[in-house]
Design a protein around this nucleic acid. Structure first.
Lengths: 206, 206
DNA sequence: CTCCGAACGGAATCGCGTGTCAGTTTCGGA
DNA sequence: TCCGAAACTGACACGCGATTCCGTTCGGAG
């Protein structure tokens, strides 16, 4: 982008940095944060664990980078190509939510290590990390709320909708889907469909 | 119940055992499992940490007992005085779910340490502990599914309801409420109402 | 009051994992 | 081919916390 001193060696360095982050993700997600030592991460890459400290301050430092990565991927999927004001009818909205659901399903369902790290490991590391996870939930709730608000304004959603709390409820269902997929990844699609059905039709007999 | 050799000293012993479990719960929930040492738990009670090992095998052992306690409290609230077949109309069902919601709200909302320990600390301890948490989710899903099945059979719920997956979606919303209550405990009631509204009316305009 | 076994406390032990550092290797330029 | 700088390595030095162990205290039976 700006600077251009990418001197071959510099590129190698960035590449190793990436690999360390990926290896750390693997270890943390598989064995758990507390159970993996720096040595484990290093061994997985076939480097000495001293080298690790040339790239990251300490163990706590790297898990932040790992989570940065995940958060970026998720917010990317959430915002990309899906502006709230791109739709104007209930049916279009339903299609859009299916699209978003698919994107999330791809991230969470395709690799169980993602939800495992983000939902099971991260919150137990630290107060600070737990707060990051809660921040992510808040961010997602804000996003969902924006969609709902848009729908209320255009009139295809109930006028008396409690936008904020309904958004949290919907995100809760998504969370539930992500967690279920830890045990039964194959049920994910049906789960996602049931979720949408609940949103649009409720559960009551007509 | 059965035996009667409760020799005063024996009662004292059981009492201390209880106190240790409670103190451990406090410490784990406040500082986190990995951050609290046995010494912290012992100090909080004013006993030597050697004494701890007269009551529990090791650190891992006690957290199991702490979780046992929580699980018992939750399943108790879930099953007590709320049999699925106690209702026969949609309105009654709605009242019953409100009652269950209140019971859960009392447990999760009244003391944020409960959801914090159960949802944020426990899953990161161990695979085994993570499995216990997932088991609890499954149990809850089964329970919710029983309510839904009953409603479908009596005809006040949609005949084509995907019972299992809808149950998981509903539990997800409850989960979302519990997590929200970590940051905004006061919103819990509104959250719970929005959840029920979503279940019964959906989000679409009429 | 005396004695004995159980309960207790906390100093000492032990193992483990983080983070450091001095010696070694690699690499690019001259 | 050689040199210096930068990167890499892994043995080592901690510190920390779980668990053990033994001298001391307590409680209640005789």
């Amino acid at each position: 982008m700006s600077a251009e001193p990418v001197s071959r060696a510099e590129r190698k360095k960035q590449e190793l940095r990436r690999e360390i982050i990926d290896a750390a993700f693997d270890c943390f997600a598989e064995r758990g944060y507390h159970a993996t030592g720096i040595a484990d991460v290093a061994t997985r890459l076939g480097i000495g664990h001293g080298t690790f400290y040339r790239y990251f301050q300490n163990k706590r430092d790297i898990v932040d980078h790992v989570v940065d990565d995940l958060v970026a991927r998720i917010t990317g999927a959430l915002t990309a190509e899906n502006a709230p004001d791109a739709v104007s009818t209930l049916d279009e909205y339903r299609e859009q939510s299916a699209r978003i659901g698919e994107a999330l399903g791809r991230i969470f369902g395709e690799d169980p290590r993602v939800p495992r790290l983000l939902l099971f490991e991260a919150p137990g590391i630290d107060r600070a990390m737990a707060d990051r996870v809660l921040d992510l939930f808040d961010l997602a709730a804000g996003l969902t709320a924006a969609y709902l608000t848009h729908g209320v304004e255009l009139g295809y959603l109930r006028a008396d909708l409690d936008v904020g709390n309904t958004a949290r409820a919907i995100n809760g269902m998504i969370l539930g889907t992500a967690i279920s997929s830890l045990r039964t990844p194959e049920a994910q699609v049906a789960q996602s469909e049931a979720l949408r059905r609940l949103m649009y039709d409720g559960i009551a007999a007509r």
